[in-house]
Design a protein around this nucleic acid. Structure first.
Lengths: 213, 213
DNA sequence: GTTTTTCCTTGATCTTGGTCAAGGAAATCC
DNA sequence: GGATTTCCTTGACCAAGATCAAGGAAAAAC
């Protein structure tokens, strides 16, 4: 999930087809050959895995600024899950041939970079999953979100309050923990005066202290 | 870790520089800009993370058939760890410019595919780490290794015995479990008559039964 | 504004897998 | 060959986090 602020890079100008997708639309089916990938400018798409028994499991949600199925496209794979539009979308659709048969080296450089950064992000995630506990993973996540921390964490205290970007249960899933544990850890951090919760928003009281907790 | 049986694809003919690396050689340093990536035809390279306190942690080992630092190269990143040759190597070294400034679209297609497949592998690993327990992860690993299972698992019983490809502790690390747990789970599977251990080799008695255990 | 859903929180309990410590088996080195 | 080191196994114990169940809060529907 890499964000460009919903703006496509110049290298792709002239490529792709802009489409509006209505809520409920089935963008692609599970096991279909992956011929298109998408850049999501607005809206939300859910990836759902259909088990042979018929039940659906939601793998993840794609939101504004994310790419969808780009790795599948270049791996010449099939879609491993189906994609359903859960909030009306504005996307740019790219077809395999359009990209691979394009001789413009800026285009391939762009996708090489995109995939490479994705690899690094996935690697980091694996590292965190195997080396950190639930609490530390959540702390890292909060620090990454906190505006004042990304800004270099200047002072001791940070008065900035920011909203959770997704439902808490979705964040929990992303971190590989249960909603219950997520809730408990947040509470614990609040008890230690590291954060302050208020409804659907959160304030990191001290990035520094939080980081080395 | 993608294997081509230590043979480079035709698309890269003429590119890269073959090098022999003696044991103990420092291939690249941590935090250095990633200007080269390597295809390892033979030998072994260890990636070690240096902590600020001076201690070294081994992240992984690169062996024959693996690529090294390819994602870092295209992400224009620095090397996140240092690389030490632990067994004399035969490698092919590729420089950034050599690849990015090459207009041959077969070359970029190749690396796009390489990175894309790597993304899919990493994704699968994350999925397994978050959804499966230690035992199931080990079972999946064994099935992937077992020759008769990859061959379509024809009969009920498989008489094929095969060696562990690495030290057990290395496999354990790869699976995200401790050597102790690894050992215990193997023993447990043996007690259930699903596998048979003998020194450094293993026999899967029934892929089918193992899979649905 | 009330009802109904959905989402979140909290507590009690249990399972999994990690840690620590010690003994045994291989491999390596003189 | 014996000695040493490295690697693996096993047991006892512990802790992190999952699960189950129930209550509360917020949002959506009417």
């Amino acid at each position: 999930m890499e964000s460009f602020g919903t703006v496509l890079p110049a290298a792709l100008k002239g490529l792709g087809k802009r489409r509006s997708l209505p809520t409920g639309m089935l963008l692609f089916l599970q096991d279909e050959p992956a011929e298109n990938c998408y850049y999501v400018e607005a809206g939300e798409i859910a990836l759902r895995l259909l088990s042979p028994t018929g039940s659906e499991v939601e793998l993840t949600k794609i939101t504004a600024g994310d790419w969808c199925a780009e790795a599948l496209l270049f791996a010449e794979s099939t879609y491993p899950a189906q994609a359903i539009v859960t909030q009306a979308c504005q996307v740019v659709q790219f077809h395999r041939d359009e990209i691979l048969k394009n001789s413009n080296s800026e285009v391939s450089s762009f996708f090489l970079g995109l995939l490479a950064r994705k690899c690094l992000r996935l690697n980091k995630r694996i590292e965190q999953l195997t080396t950190l506990g639930a609490r530390d993973r959540l702390v890292q996540y909060l620090l990454k979100l906190c505006p004042s921390h990304s800004a270099g964490c200047p002072g001791k205290l940070t008065n900035c309050r920011f909203p959770f970007p997704k439902k808490k249960r979705e964040i929990a899933q992303e971190l590989g923990i249960t909603p219950e544990t997520f809730s408990r850890v947040l509470r614990q951090l609040e008890d230690e005066n590291l954060i302050q919760l208020e409804g659907t928003s959160i304030q990191v009281i001290s990035c520094e202290r939080l980081q080395q907790s």
